[in-house]
């Protein structure tokens, strides 16, 4: 089981870290959340059948952990990413613009964009993960794209 756990950890660690970071916009919080989530996974590891179910579980638990953290008023005093650009070694200016713009969006929009474009989840899967209706996800995605388009130069294609 340990070898299998190590394999899964290596497979998903960065995705989960990026999800936590996209929500919290804070490296220290993302570190804490990653630790917490993977320790929980270790305790429940024998209950999963395949990587797909593990990934979805990790995603749900990470989001729950982020929400719990976010309810703390202290934790809400975070700095926008543009104030700490030096912390993110982005190679291309284009990437920096996209990520910076993403982080200016409200977290519910950041989350759906991340799950849709980074994790390649379908609407139905995102609805299941976030425990909201598909129609709500479609609306949020549409609004998020629209906001992102307005904020970015050149806009994005509707996909």
């Amino acid at each position: 089981m340990d070898e299998e756990y190590a394999r899964v950890f290596n497979l998903f660690k960065n995705d989960i870290y990026r999800l936590a970071f996209s929500y919290t916009k804070n490296y220290l919080d993302a570190d804490d959340i990653l630790q917490s989530v993977f320790i929980k996974l270790y305790k429940n590891f024998d209950k999963f059948e395949d990587d797909t179910s593990i990934k979805k579980w990790l995603t749900k638990v990470t989001i729950n952990e982020c929400k719990t953290l976010f309810l703390s008023a202290w934790k809400r005093k975070i700095f926008p990413i543009t104030d700490k650009e030096e912390n993110i070694p982005i190679n291309k200016k284009q990437d920096l613009d996209l990520i910076n713009t993403l982080f200016q969006l409200p977290k519910k929009y950041r989350l759906v964009l991340f799950l849709f474009y980074y994790e390649d989840y379908k609407i139905k899967e995102i609805a299941e993960i976030l425990n909201v209706k598909e129609a709500t996800i479609k609306t949020r995605l549409s609004r998020a794209r629209s906001l992102l388009k307005d904020m970015l130069e050149g806009g994005i294609k509707n996909e």
Binding site: N91, L98, I99, L102, E159
Partner: peptide, 14 residues
């Protein structure tokens, strides 16, 4: 767009 997202996060890692 998916590619842009993935590239944007590429340097954020454990």
């Amino acid at each position: 767009m998916n590619k842009k997202f993935k590239e944007g996060f590429a340097n954020i890692r454990v």
